[in-house]
């Protein structure tokens, strides 16, 4: 682990209790992120990407259990430090941005007091200093007339403005990592691009690492340095963004990219491309490749044993025994 490593998580597992038994939402995910780097975690609903992010801050829903064989943040091991240790990471060294800016701000307080409360909790200092920082950050995230805005209540702001406020709030304590869980899903398409640009901009200006969780490959392609594609609680393919988008090797990644609607290729009225089948139940998952039932390249040994994540070139890993040939590049 080099000194540049910001986050190092190994073998993260999350189980959720359900009426029909424990559900393995995340099955052995390992992540590593360097300072200032952006990791996009991509996958469909229920693939465990949000659970992965929430478990980093110990914010899982009650009853859910997370285990990991290693959790190091900024060179310090977090595992075993208990809830107090992780709570101090929250907000202070790891900022989080949620999907729904419309509801993620407390409706009964002006945004100014919400921004300063975070800062003063972790950094102490005077209210005036905290306000000064709040104004500076609001201006930095592109909110004009920031000083007057501090007195406004969340319902007086539009969705895009609120998401900017959330970003400013996540930045209040100068965190070294920001986790953004679907930060643009609830926003208009035009605002989406602005927010993504802002996130990319902030990342370079402040040197923070960014974990971007999304189901939208278009979003990650703009911002992320690295991608981890998740399927059924596992990372199935990971590598540099450009390489994966240009030459996906796991059949699921291929299918995901193939499902992107492309107006120049799809005739009007023609059905959109999909991946046939559904995600297997993660209650008592079979000892086989989770994607085998839906895979066009399935082999007999895919259903015999679960494939391991294996190295596939520099910085690239893949969980497949029969991947698309590397020469697939279109």
């Amino acid at each position: 682990m080099s000194a540049l490593t910001l986050l190092d998580v190994d073998n993260l597992c999350v189980t959720l209790p359900t009426a029909s038994g424990p559900l393995s939402a995340v099955r052995g995910v390992s992540l590593s992120l360097r300072r200032g780097e952006t990791l996009g975690i991509v996958g469909e609903s229920g693939c465990g990407k949000s659970m992965t992010a929430l478990s980093l801050l110990n914010l899982l829903p009650s009853g859910a259990k997370a285990t990991m064989s290693r959790y190091a943040f900024d060179g310090e091991t977090v595992t075993g430090r208990g809830k107090r240790g992780i709570r101090n990471l929250r907000g202070n060294r790891i900022g989080m941005i949620f999907q729904e800016p419309m509801t993620a701000l407390n409706p009964v307080f002006p945004i100014g007091s919400q921004l300063t409360a975070v800062y003063r909790r972790h950094k102490g200092g005077s209210e005036a200093a905290a306000r000064e920082r709040a104004v500076m950050l609001l201006e930095r995230v592109g909110i004009s007339n920031a000083a007057a805005r501090l007195a406004q209540f969340p319902h007086q702001l539009s969705g895009g403005l609120r998401q900017r406020v959330m970003i400013a709030m996540a930045l209040m304590c100068e965190p070294s990592l920001i986790i953004a869980d679907e930060p643009t899903t609830a926003l208009d398409v035009t605002i989406q691009m602005q927010i993504l640009k802002l996130l990319a901009d902030i990342k370079t200006a402040f040197g923070t690492g960014l974990i971007l969780i999304t189901h939208d490959l278009g979003v990650v392609s703009h911002v992320a340095d690295k991608i981890a594609v998740m399927y059924a609680g596992e990372v199935v393919e990971t590598g540099r963004t450009a390489e994966i988008l240009a030459a996906p090797r796991h059949p699921y990644t291929v299918g995901l990219l193939g499902s992107l609607p492309d107006p120049s290729r799809t005739a009007p009225g023609a059905p959109l491309a999909t991946i046939p089948g559904t995600v297997p139940s993660l209650i008592d998952p079979p000892d086989a490749c989770a994607f085998a039932d839906r895979c066009a390249r399935v082999l007999p040994r895919c259903t015999a044993a679960a494939p391991a994540l294996r190295q596939d070139g520099p910085g690239r890993s893949i969980r497949c025994v029969n991947p698309e040939p590397a020469a697939w590049v279109a």
Binding site: N88, L89, R90, T103, N106, V108, A117, M169
Partner: peptide, 28 residues
């Protein structure tokens, strides 16, 4: 389960803060 309560948790707010400042004013 409101998002602002989860957000406050993610900001590292203490339990008394979450109960008194995030939840109580909203159920007043």
């Amino acid at each position: 389960s409101a998002d602002y309560v989860r957000a406050a948790e993610a900001m590292g707010c203490s339990l008394p803060h979450i109960l008194a400042r995030e939840i109580l004013p909203n159920i007043m």
